[in-house]
Amino acid sequence: MIIAALVTSLGGFIALALAMDKHCKHLLRRVLAPRWMNVLTAAGWGLLALSLGLCCVCWGVSIGIAAWSGWLTLAGILLVFYMPNWPWQPEQPKAPPRREKKGVVVDAQPVVEGGHWLRKSATGGLLLVPLAVAIWFFIVMAGR
């Protein structure tokens, strides 16, 4: 139950990040259509609301809201420190190549492209896991 709140919060933040042009270019290397941006925005806020509901069901309203804010903080910190370390992130601009003493320019390392299937599957998995956890939670709660 506790992990479900964290995972749905993380999924909501990822969906909201994909709904922004800057982060969408960073994660998918393209900008989605406005219709998909609206869908991701609604899904992100829906997952955050679901996370609030999970916390309130588990601990009651008073403690649930406080626990929810803690899970939001933890999910945000995880996402902030994880996003810059994604392997397909764009390279940061580097200083121009240094010149040797005799005027010969040293070439920079070539950039290797690839891993498109990995990027798409990781992003899709990060969006689908919170939904699976939420469905599992409601099935377990219905059995009680």
Rank of each mutant, 00 (worst) to 15 (best):
L6Y: 10
E100Q: 11
Q109K: 10
G114R: 03
L50Q: 05
G115W: 00
A132L: 15
I65G: 04
L128H: 06
I139G: 00
N85K: 14
R98I: 05
M20R: 15
N38V: 12
D21K: 14
H23L: 15
G44C: 03
D107W: 05
G46L: 10
G143H: 11
V104Y: 03
L52C: 13
V140P: 00
Y82C: 12
L27I: 06
G143Q: 13
C55L: 06
K25T: 07
W136I: 11
F81G: 10
A19Y: 00
M37D: 07
A5E: 00
L48D: 06
M83C: 03
L54T: 14
A4K: 00
V112D: 07
T8V: 07
L28Q: 10
G124I: 06
A134D: 02
K102D: 15
S121L: 13
I139M: 11
L128Y: 07
V112L: 12
V57G: 10
V129R: 03
W71T: 12
V112W: 09
M37P: 01
G64N: 04
P130S: 02
W117M: 09
S51R: 03
L126T: 06
A49Q: 03
M20P: 01
L32H: 04
V39L: 12
V105N: 01
F138S: 09
L40A: 02
C56K: 08
C58I: 07
V112H: 08
C55E: 13
A67N: 10
V112C: 02
G60C: 02
W36K: 05
A66C: 06
P93K: 01
V80M: 11
L74Y: 04
M20E: 14
A132M: 12
V111M: 07
V105Y: 05
I77W: 13
W59E: 06
C24F: 02
A134R: 01
Q92G: 05
G76W: 03
L131P: 04
V106D: 00
M1C: 04
W88Y: 04
C56I: 15
